[in-house]
Design a protein around this nucleic acid. Structure first.
Lengths: 340, 340
DNA sequence: ATGAAAGCGCTAACAA
DNA sequence: TTGTTAGCGCTTTCAT
């Protein structure tokens, strides 16, 4: 038979309630008692029964990670970070892919909450910005932490200064001597698309360049949209000498379209992306991009949530640093790339 | 207050046990009663309390998906499939990245099992082949289903005829006229590496070509190992005209190394991969590969497991079909590729 | 600082 | 086919 809390209590010569106190790190236990109980737990290899705890305490010790993101690299990084934080405090994590545009999106989240009763949620973009969902969560008192939400006020979680990062990225292109710089925007539903566009505009302004709307093409963060956008840009009378894509998938699409058209990168066109996903290191040339620490962001967001769940704090909106990752896809206009 | 099973019973004019029977799809309930209870459940928007069910029935309704796989694309596909199957039967899924080579690998799985008490596991390669783990699971009576295990006998889950697929892939190269075909092997710990090598050898034999060990290079399924292997192959006195990489990540590494060396693909060298991961469509040229239906495999493996868990069957080892995906990275030796 | 009693919401075992 | 009783392993509330 499995070791129960009662067995630990008997072996330690205390009441079940005291063992429970130790288990839950509650106050009002003498330090010597606490240690004795702990050592008995270890000796008996005791593991609390999660369902029993949940039933009695009305907590599930469960964090649900909701996402609707086409990038497997991003998703798994965030997941691993959330899991690390959950493990630390012995919470479980469940993951939930969703389709934010489906008719039954809210219904599905509702069912998840009613059925699994997670103590809290970690939201990732674009779910972070679904106004109706957030409103319901607030109404129902379901705690959540957000990764890169559009609206940071009144929310806990984690963010990066994406606008500044995008600005730095484009400043790098300016510093190389580019004057005709295009931008491929991400999906409208994502806050990131706006921030990255704003950073692009900031850099142009800082460089004394006018904003030219023919150089800004709508994409949706997918590889295919990067290809389409690049085809459009390459057909322009005056081709841009550099393209800042809103993420790495689109940047790889741009590079693909360049190859299709016989353009050499970065000789004929410089290309840069955003996120530092694996693909940015796996194509030729490797992509200059912005390093976004996905694992760390998942971990920090979950930690803020857990602070609330455990009553050990209120959680904050934490900022994480980015870094410009220079690789081979950017060079001075007409610059050269070793090619064999 | 939340709706409980007792509330449903009262409203339907039956005993709690009868409601429980309906909930668990047990026999011995008159059809009319069953329907009445169901409609009351729906009317009250009743959701069973999972912890209470677990505590009373000693089941967790939880399936854990264990993996140690460097490919995010593969992992998320499998995950989504497992989740779909779990949803169907109202089981939850938790995911668990692990490091199979860590000293505490077994310890970690043990802790997971003791703490979360999943009713069953879905294993993915290479965890499927960890002899000691399998032995323990069998000892402890923890049910599991495997995706592409090395040893299929006595196991339930899902597999693909990878050897045959690899053979087909290489036969395609032979059909194009290649006679000097290299192979980059995957990680030794993965059964897939062996099957794919065997398929390569089968094809050579079928084509009447000798096996040349200088044309077979050890990799580990990573992009970097593909680069390294290709550098080695490209340095050979007599360069291969085609390279069959053990997966798409390595194939993209080969293509990267070709670009580095100024070799054109498929003009100078044909390259093909395996798995049909997103990267195979996101680089130039797109990669000829074997389509492996990850989502479907995850789904089917989980369904076999759930059959066992729900007592509705014993589960089987299911085979799924593959398909050769012809793309732009393969052509006849000296063949041509449109390049602008 | 510690303990005793009650009960969380469901299902198992048994009874009718 | 349906119902009754007991109890899963823990935490809560309240007492001491």
């Amino acid at each position: 038979m499995r070791v129960r809390l009662e067995d630990v209590a008997r072996a330690a010569g205390v009441s079940p309630k005291t063992v429970s106190r130790v288990l839950n790190e509650e106050a009002n236990v003498r330090e010597s008692t606490r240690e004795r109980v702990r050592s008995v737990m270890a000796a008996l290899n005791y593991r609390p029964n999660l369902p029993a705890r949940s039933l009695a305490s009305n907590q599930s010790f469960l964090v649900a990670n909701l996402y609707d993101n086409p990038s497997p690299g991003y998703v798994t990084e965030i997941q691993a970070g959330v899991l690390e934080a959950c493990d630390l405090h012995r919470y479980s994590m469940m993951v939930r892919p969703l389709n934010i545009e489906a008719d039954d999106f809210l219904q599905r989240v509702e069912t998840l909450i009613l059925y699994h009763r997670p103590d809290g949620l970690v939201l990732t973009p674009p779910i972070t910005d679904h106004a109706e969902l957030l409103q319901r969560l607030n109404q129902q008192g379901v705690p959540y932490a957000s990764v890169s939400p559009r609206e940071r006020a009144g929310t806990i979680g984690v963010f990066m200064d994406e606008q500044q990062a995008a600005r730095d990225m484009v400043m790098h292109l300016l510093a190389l001597g580019h004057r005709r710089i295009a931008h491929v925007m991400g999906h409208r539903a994502h806050g990131a698309s706006g921030w990255r566009l704003d950073g692009y505009r900031d850099a142009l302004a800082a460089g004394g360049l006018p904003y030219d709307s023919t150089l800004v093409v709508q994409g949706d963060f997918s590889f295919a949209s990067g290809v389409a956008a690049a085809r459009q840009l390459f057909s322009l009378q005056r081709r841009p000498t550099a393209i800042f894509a809103g993420n790495d998938d689109m940047a790889s699409g741009v590079i693909w379209a360049a190859a299709e058209r016989g353009l050499s990168i970065p000789n004929d066109v410089s290309v840069c992306g955003f996120d530092d996903m694996p693909i940015s290191r796996q194509i030729w040339p490797t992509i200059t991009t912005i390093r976004q620490p996905g694992h760390e962001m998942g971990r920090l967001a979950a930690l803020q949530l857990l602070e609330v769940l455990r009553g050990s704090g209120t959680g904050r909106m934490v900022e994480v640093p980015y870094a410009v990752q220079l690789r081979e896809s950017t060079a001075a206009p007409g610059g050269n790339l070793r090619r064999g």
